[in-house]
């Protein structure tokens, strides 16, 4: 199993190299001149040229690339023009915020979509099936930033149930000492339940807006997979053996139906990380999504590249995680090469 993990890991390296090359080329062919941007509005042609030389932007692209890769290997992603901080520090500070949001969104989506899909599969063609299809389609039809705005309007502005959408935690709550980087968990660990509740309150609306997006693929996958499994031979056998309905549905049906769902979880998670970009803007969330948007708007090469490389690494790690999860739930995978 260890060998297999190592092998999967190694097979990801070429894609990582590809990502690094492509992002470098794309970010350097983007319109906009960072040297002009950083030299300031009152800059002269000379000071722009000076800035360009200082940033190493006057070098030919291949040389810039080699410098970049050399730095990257040492864990140096360069310095963000915007924040003046090393990109790695910025990302490390902002990643937990995005991760926490995405994870809650995913949990929300799973908790809603999986039972809905199962229910629909067990009673195909019933009202619950139609309800499932209707809700799920509607949820996927609206862009997530729009859903987010509607939710803010209704639950914050009209009803006043949700806290103001100004980030992870209102300023009058103390930030708990960082252990996991997840404010809700860190606050509980620190014994500060008031902060934990406040952090959770801030999370609910963005997590739902984000999670609604993942509802459709998850519910559909669960439904289709369960229907397929319930029609398979071994379910007929289980019924022919007179096993209790509960055993047939759960032990024999559900566990098998879960396999493809586990498979797409990794995809959905990374897809949500990407969808974060808009949600974070709407909710003032200090995550990597808003960081990336800002970086693109200001041609902050180092930040863009850092963001994309980090996403690629995350994507690879997530898929590895899914593979390992798969090995645990599906014995057939363990023996495959």
């Amino acid at each position: 199993m260890i060998a297999m993990i190592a092998k999967r890991f190694a097979s990801a390296i070429p894609s990582l190299i590809g990502v690094i090359i492509v992002t470098f080329v794309i970010s350097h062919t983007l319109p906009g001149d960072p040297a002009a941007y950083f030299a300031g509005p009152s800059a002269t042609a000379e000071s722009i040229a000076e800035t360009r030389a200082r940033l190493g932007l006057d070098q030919p692209l291949p040389i810039q690339f080699l410098t970049y890769v050399g730095d990257l290997v040492q864990g140096d992603m360069g310095r963000s023009f915007n924040s003046g901080q090393p990109v790695l520090t910025d990302l490390a500070r902002r990643l937990p915020a995005s991760f926490e949001l995405t994870l809650y969104a995913l949990v929300f989506a799973i908790v809603v979509a999986v039972p809905l899909g199962l229910w629909a599969a067990v009673n195909p063609g019933s009202w619950i099936d139609h309800l499932c299809r209707g809700t799920v389609t509607a949820a996927a039809a609206f862009p997530s930033f729009f859903t987010a705005l509607v939710l803010i309007f209704v639950f914050y502005y009209k009803l006043g149930w949700a806290p103001s959408p100004i980030g992870r935690l209102a300023i009058y709550f103390p930030i708990p000492p960082s252990v996991t980087g997840f404010l809700t968990i860190d606050a509980v660990l620190a014994g500060d339940l008031a902060t934990a509740r406040a952090a959770l309150g801030q999370l609910i609306l963005p997590a739902i807006s984000l999670g609604l997006f993942a509802l459709a693929p998850l519910a559909r996958m669960t439904r289709a997979s369960m229907i397929g499994v319930l029609g398979s031979d071994f379910i007929t056998t289980a019924r022919a053996e007179g096993l209790p309905r509960r055993t047939v549905l759960w032990t024999y049906g559900f566990r098998n139906a879960l396999l493809p769902v586990v498979n797409i979880l990794g995809m959905i998670f990374s897809f949500l990380l990407g969808a974060n970009v808009l949600i974070e803007q709407v909710f003032g969330w200090p995550g990597i999504g808003s960081y990336a948007v800002e970086a693109v708007l200001t041609s902050d090469y180092a930040a863009i590249q850092g963001f994309v490389v980090m996403m690629a690494v995350l994507y690879i790690l997530l898929n590895l995680g899914v593979d390992i999860l798969n090995m645990i739930v599906d014995p057939r995978v363990r023996y495959d090469d």
Binding site: F234, T251, N256
Partner: peptide, 24 residues
């Protein structure tokens, strides 16, 4: 019928491998 199945009567299928739960 559930109570009778298995207890009184049972069935063996053609493709035994697909008739068994693959992950149990």
């Amino acid at each position: 019928v559930d109570a009778l199945r298995g207890k009184r009567m049972t069935i063996i299928f053609q493709n035994a491998r697909s008739a068994l739960n693959p992950i149990r």
